[in-house]
Amino acid sequence: MPEGPEIRRAADRIANVLVDETVEEVAFAFPELQRFTKVLSGQRVLEVETRGKALLTHFDNDYAIYSHNQLYGVWKIAKRGKMPATNRSLRLALHTSGHSALLYSASDISVWPREEIGMHPFLATLGPDLLSAKLAWRDISERLAMPRFAGRSLAALYLDQHFLAGSGNYLRSEILFCAGVHPKRRPRDLSRGERGRLARETLDLPRRSYETGGITLPPRLAATLKKTVKGFERRRFFVFGRDGRPCYSCKDTIRRDSMGSRRIYWCPTCQPE
């Protein structure tokens, strides 16, 4: 599933072709949404916003399209009239005079009056967005100390969108590694210094991933690996997907387990249990 940084980058691409443009034609695959084609066609797009893993397209008639990629959804941008070659099912199409923003394979799409969008069942329960410019590391530290979160394992907490919106499977492994904390530990078991370090990494890693297109490694290490390691997926992360390989920091062997029904990776030396 795409995580916060990937959804934000998709939103940037969509905004680049839609914002301040008139959407001449709107097409929904789902019958229950087709009544909104006339409501939205001919309207100007004001903003493309992300809230965690959800994406909102705001129109100047005070309506918004909510979409969530879930596991398989993907946005594609194309010149108007030139549809991408794909076997995916088209779920939503927004056509301007020059471009098309196309959402494939997603099933969670709805249309809302903008003043009511906060009542969406998913959005109403979200924690702060990891990529929000208003979010500070002290805010995250305070949330870690809240009774509703403090007694849960970090492995579970860092998949919970009520805690922080936009976190997901690769981000939790990478954040916990960089903070030097084991996935089974709980916030209430951390020292003040450990909690502060975890909060800082929770803020920094998603922003680095967003800026680099999915790389969580620091620039110098990423540049070195690019020269010696073939394949983007093999040189993106500290630990995620690297089980059986040596840790970049201590050379111990990265391990893999299943926590919260999702795979997780850690270094037994850098993240002692």
Rank of each mutant, 00 (worst) to 15 (best):
V239I: 06
R234E: 13
E233R: 10
F238W: 15
P246V: 06
K226F: 02
R235V: 05
V229R: 14
V239S: 03
G231F: 02
V229D: 11
K226C: 03
A222L: 06
R236H: 01
Y248A: 10
G244K: 11
T228D: 11
E233F: 04
V229C: 09
G231N: 08
D243E: 15
R234P: 00
P246K: 14
V229N: 07
G241Y: 02
C247Q: 06
A222Q: 08
R245G: 11
R220F: 10
T224V: 12
G244F: 05
C247V: 06
R236E: 05
F237W: 06
V229H: 07
P246M: 13
E233N: 05
R234C: 02
C247F: 05
A223L: 07
G231Q: 09
P246W: 08
G244R: 09
F237N: 07
K226N: 09
Y248R: 08
D243N: 11
G231P: 02
K226Y: 04
Y248V: 03
F240C: 03
K227D: 04
T228F: 01
K227F: 02
K230Y: 04
K230E: 15
L221D: 11
R234T: 02
Y248I: 02
S249K: 14
F238D: 09
S249F: 05
Y248S: 12
R234V: 01
T228R: 14
G231E: 08
R234A: 14
V229M: 11
F240W: 07
F238V: 00
L221H: 05
F237E: 04
T228V: 12
E233S: 10
F240P: 00
A223I: 01
R242D: 05
K226L: 08
G241H: 05
A223N: 09
L221M: 13
F238R: 07
D243L: 01
R235A: 07
R220A: 15
T224Y: 07
L221A: 11
R220L: 15
G241E: 07
G244M: 12
R234S: 11
R220M: 13
D243A: 15
G241T: 01
R242M: 08
A223W: 00
K230M: 14
T228M: 08
L221C: 07
L225G: 03
K230S: 15
P246I: 08
D243V: 02
G244P: 04
R245M: 15
R245L: 15
P246E: 09
C247P: 02
F232V: 08
G231A: 07
V239G: 01
S249N: 10
V229S: 07
G244A: 13
R235M: 14
R235C: 09
F238Q: 09
F237T: 04
G244L: 10
V239L: 07
P246R: 10
R236P: 00
G231T: 01
R235W: 09
R234M: 09
F237D: 01
S249G: 03
G244N: 11
S249V: 09
R220G: 10
F240K: 00
L225S: 04
K226G: 06
R234W: 05
F240A: 10
C247E: 11
